[in-house]
Computed example of a mutant assay.
Amino acid sequence: MLKPVAECMIVDSTALPEQVVRDVVRSAFASAGQRCSALRVLYVQQDIAERVIGLIKGAMAELQVGDPRLHQTDVGPVIDKVARDKLQTHIQALKNQATQVAQAPLAAACEHGDFVAPTAFEIASITQLTQEHFGPILHIVRYAADELDSVIAQINQTGFGLTLGVHSRNEGTYRHIERRARVGNCYINRDQVGAVVGVQPFGGQGLSGTGPKAGGPHYLLRFTQACDRSQAQRQSKAQTKTQAYSASAQDANQDLHQELNQCPDNQGKEM
């Protein structure tokens, strides 16, 4: 069964925890988690999971939720009440089905507006998620080093593949993941939101894809039609020759009429 949750990040034991947490918090909670590329599921190798999760707790405790017009605000409201209610329902369900890692505090002013507290849960598997929850909710899954290929397979089996984040200082590991993950954009050792227009072409694969990436070198081809240039040149030459022959024949015909009309025996006769 396809699960429409594919915006994941894989963190192995060689990653720098502080850098990971910075990029996780931005990827999961910037724009209140309402970006198509926002992080939904964080896979952390169990060797460093406690350290990373502890730092995530601390970072989330510092998040300021409130009016996005204020400079001190880190996370604003979600788009409307319907979205807020759906997200709150999912949070309440996970409180009975998973382990809550952290939840950012909400100021009293957030009672008026469609605010959702950024929340992180630890779950057993991505298969617990049956749909994407478009908001500031992070799901964390631990994995063993020898389960990496299984993790990649689980992500691929969702059928969706827009973005994937990878944190590793081992070039062999992140290249192994990049080659096997069926996603449009794979970000290595950085956050996975905010592709720079004109620099980083953006688009997905599978059910997240619509063809060539917008902004990429092949994007213009979407607006063109394939044409055999050699065939077109042959057709053009043939047409030119035909036009030249027709013009020559017409000129010869006109010259013949003029000569016949000038002949004394044919003067006064209809041709």
Results as ranks from 00 to 15, higher is better:
Ala238Asn: 05
Gly206Glu: 00
His218Leu: 07
His218Arg: 11
Thr173Pro: 10
Gly204Trp: 02
Arg179Phe: 14
Gln225Pro: 02
Val193Ala: 04
Tyr174Thr: 04
Ile188Met: 05
Ala195Pro: 15
Arg190Tyr: 03
Gln239Phe: 07
Gln225Arg: 14
Gly203Ser: 00
Glu171Asn: 14
His176Trp: 11
Val183Met: 10
Val199Ile: 10
Val199Leu: 08
Asn170His: 13
Gln225Tyr: 10
Leu207Glu: 00
Arg180His: 03
Phe160Asp: 00
Gly203Asn: 00
Asn185Phe: 06
Ile188Gly: 02
Arg229Pro: 04
Gln205Arg: 11
Leu207Trp: 01
Gly216Asn: 09
Ile177Pro: 06
Gln157Ile: 03
Gln192Pro: 13
Leu220Pro: 09
Arg222Ala: 08
Val166Asp: 02
Gly216Met: 07
Ile188Trp: 07
Asn156Tyr: 09
Gly172Glu: 07
Asp191Thr: 10
Pro212Trp: 12
Glu171Lys: 15
Lys237Trp: 15
Gly172Phe: 09
Asn170Glu: 09
Gly216Val: 09
Asp191Phe: 12
Gly206Tyr: 02
Gly209Lys: 13
Leu162Lys: 11
Lys213Glu: 01
Gln200Glu: 06
Phe202Thr: 03
Gly215Asp: 10
Val183Arg: 13
Gln233Met: 10
Leu220Asn: 08
Asn156Gly: 05
Gln225Cys: 04
Gln200Met: 12
Thr210Lys: 04
Arg179Lys: 14
Leu162Glu: 11
Asp228Gly: 01
Arg229His: 09
Gln192Asp: 01
His176Tyr: 13
Ala232Arg: 14
Gly211Met: 04
Cys186Gln: 00
Asn156Thr: 01
His176Lys: 11
Lys237Tyr: 15
Gly203Leu: 00
Leu162Thr: 13
Glu178Gly: 13
Gln231Cys: 01
Arg180Asp: 01
Phe202Pro: 08
Gly194Asn: 03
Ile177Gly: 05
Arg175Pro: 03
Leu220Thr: 08
Gln200Tyr: 03
Arg175Thr: 08
Glu171Thr: 14
Asp191Lys: 09
Tyr219Phe: 15
Gly165Ile: 02
Ser168Lys: 08
Ser168Trp: 13
Gln205Pro: 03
Lys237Gln: 15
Ile188Pro: 07
Gly215Tyr: 12
Gly194Pro: 12
Asn156Phe: 05
Ala226Tyr: 12
Gln233Thr: 07
Phe223Met: 03
Cys186Tyr: 02
Gln239His: 06
Tyr219Leu: 02
Ser230Asn: 11
Asn170Phe: 12
Lys213Ser: 06
Gln239Arg: 05
Gln231Lys: 12
Thr173Asn: 09
Gly215Lys: 15
Gly159Gln: 08
Glu171Pro: 14
Gly198Asp: 08
Arg190Cys: 06
Gln192Thr: 07
Arg180Ala: 01
Arg229Val: 14
Ile177Cys: 05
Ala181Val: 13
Val199Lys: 08
Arg169Lys: 15
Leu221Cys: 04
Gly184Ile: 12
Asn189Gln: 10
Lys237Gly: 05
Gly211Trp: 02
His218Trp: 15
Leu220Met: 13
Pro212Thr: 08
Leu207Gln: 00
Asn189Val: 09
Asn189Trp: 11
Glu178Asn: 14
Thr173Tyr: 09
